Computed example of a mutant assay.
Amino acid sequence: MMSNDLQRLAAQLGAVLEARGWRLAAAESCTGGWIAKCITDIPGSSGWLERGFVTYSNEAKQEMLGVAAETLAAEGAVSEAVVREMALGAVARSRAEIAVAVSGVAGPGGGTPAKPVGMVCFGFAFPDRVETETCYLDGNRDEVRRASVRHALGGLITRCDATADTPADAC
């Protein structure tokens, strides 16, 4: 069951996207489709969610989203460079006007000193720009993933609607 905060954010995002006539594509790695799940829990979401890509492996990122093997080799899957390419690839391979991309280390293992558990990178592609950011989120695997979904939804709202009353969670 979706938590009230995620449901509220998904509904608010839907209203913002519907008002703009925009459709969204979600390119997800560590969230495993959770962003798309939250959105599709909202009645009428077929009007503004165009599609979702769950690209957990590097091969999926390359094949489904066009992420360059060179970017993955140089920067690693958890990087702003990769989520930028994921977001751009999601727009290019869909009929969406905007996209969100997420890749991170949810744990409990897999972290390194350079990329610790809780490090999550976000990419936001819009018709006129692409923005990326990195957050360091606390908690266990479920908490990091939930916070990632919350941040992605809030980040989309904030970037789509400067008058939004729900700012994205700070990193």
Rank of each mutant, 00 (worst) to 15 (best):
A114S: 09
V149F: 02
A77S: 14
T71N: 08
V91C: 13
G107D: 03
A106E: 02
M2Q: 12
W34Y: 15
A125E: 04
W34F: 15
A164M: 11
G47W: 12
E133K: 04
G33P: 09
G52F: 01
L17M: 14
E70I: 04
Y56G: 06
C135Y: 00
R146D: 13
R93C: 10
V100T: 08
L72H: 10
P116L: 12
R129T: 07
S103K: 08
E85F: 03
Y136N: 14
G110N: 09
A77V: 05
A168D: 06
D142W: 05
F124Y: 15
D138F: 10
Y56D: 13
R141M: 06
A19E: 13
D161C: 13
S29T: 11
V83E: 00
Q7V: 08
A68I: 02
E59Y: 09
T71Y: 08
E63A: 14
V117L: 06
E133H: 05
W22L: 13
A77E: 03
W48L: 08
R150A: 14
L9R: 14
I98T: 15
C121P: 11
G107T: 03
L137P: 01
A152N: 07
G110A: 11
L153Q: 07
R145N: 03
Q62C: 08
R23G: 03
E75L: 07
V82T: 12
A25H: 08
A10L: 11
E63Q: 14
E85I: 05
A10N: 07
R146H: 13
G139F: 04
P43L: 05
R95C: 10
S45N: 10
G104F: 00
D142I: 07
R129A: 14
R23L: 10
T134G: 08
R51E: 11
W48E: 06
L24F: 14
L6S: 07
R84T: 11
H151A: 15
G155T: 03
V149A: 03
